[in-house]
Nucleic acid binder design. Structure first.
Length: 272
DNA sequence: GTCCAGGCATGCA
DNA sequence: TGCATGCATGGA
């Protein structure tokens, strides 16, 4: 992969195994909005980005090389060999056609707090409505960037809100979870940074101690916000997929089960 | 009107 | 340990 800057844009050439449309709209992140020209606008780690893809070329607009190195390089997981990962997954004949069909789905390395918070919102909810709630949350309590977009609000900021404030965003019965979660993180009871260095079981156990976080939400947060690529979230869609794996998951999923899951999840939503 | 969505806490056996 | 139930909201 070659990285260069041109007219204020960062351009990546020769990127393997990437499909921006699938990656940004597969239900792992809730803040990316597709533009009329096919590019995507979004905010992560306090920065706005417009990103577009033309085959194996990826163009990052409204950013610079320094921000690319500090944020986007890791966010989009550009250093991981997804082509090799897909080849490994395809040893399982069941997932092979799905990997071919949706080739290029990547796991985004999102901010831990944002991932945990948005997946608490996600429970018993649909993706469209989750996006709406997250956007209202950011508009109301995030910091405004120069072009009108807002950052995801910090735990400190949200710890000042009441249950009623969260309800006003349309979070429904999840409001009480968000209220306690924000205070727990802001107050230091829950150390998110420490979780990344734990084992998967230990990390999951820690997250399960939070009011409003169950197995599914914990696994989503671990996969999308804490770099546990082996976390395997099972929601209503994945429960349907799991009927195809009555004997458990194949060995070739070891260590990368979360990536396999994302392909299967996408397949299920389109076919079941 | 009913059913469903990237589920969880609670109570009960 | 496992299973049944209530829960907010909005789109289909």
């Amino acid at each position: 992969m070659k990285v260069k800057t041109e007219k204020g844009n960062v351009i990546l050439e020769g990127v393997e195994c990437i499909n921006l449309d699938l990656t940004l709209d597969c239900g792992q992140a809730f803040r990316w909005v597709k533009q009329d020209d096919g590019s995507w606008n979004g905010v992560a780690f306090g920065k706005f980005l417009n990103i577009a893809q033309d085959g194996s070329t990826v163009i990052l607009r409204d950013t610079d090389l320094d921000t690319y190195e500090k944020i986007w390089r890791h966010y989009f997981d550009f250093d991981k060999d997804y082509a090799a990962i897909c080849a490994t997954l395809k040893k399982d004949s069941l997932i092979a056609p799905t990997v071919d069909e949706y080739y290029g789905i990547r796991i985004l390395n999102q901010d831990s707090w944002e991932a945990l918070c948005t997946f608490v919102i996600s429970q018993q909810n649909n993706i469209k409505r989750i996006k709406g709630i997250v956007e209202r949350l950011c508009t109301a309590y995030g910091d405004e960037l120069e072009n009108g977009w807002h950052t995801f609000p910090s735990a400190e900021r949200l710890s000042a809100l009441s249950v009623e404030d969260f309800e006003a965003l349309g979070t429904g019965y999840r409001a009480k979870y968000l209220e306690r979660l924000s205070k727990a993180v802001a107050g230091g009871e829950l150390d998110l940074d420490g979780i990344k260095s734990m084992s998967l079981d230990e990390a999951r156990k820690t997250l399960l101690g939070i009011y409003g976080v169950g197995v599914k939400v914990a696994n989503c947060a671990l996969l999308f916000g804490f770099e546990f690529y082996d976390a395997f979230p099972v929601d209503v869609w994945m429960k349907r997929v799991m009927e195809y794996y009555p004997d458990g998951l194949p060995e070739c999923f070891d260590g990368i089960g979360g990536i396999a899951q994302q392909y299967l999840f996408h397949w299920a939503r389109n076919n079941l």
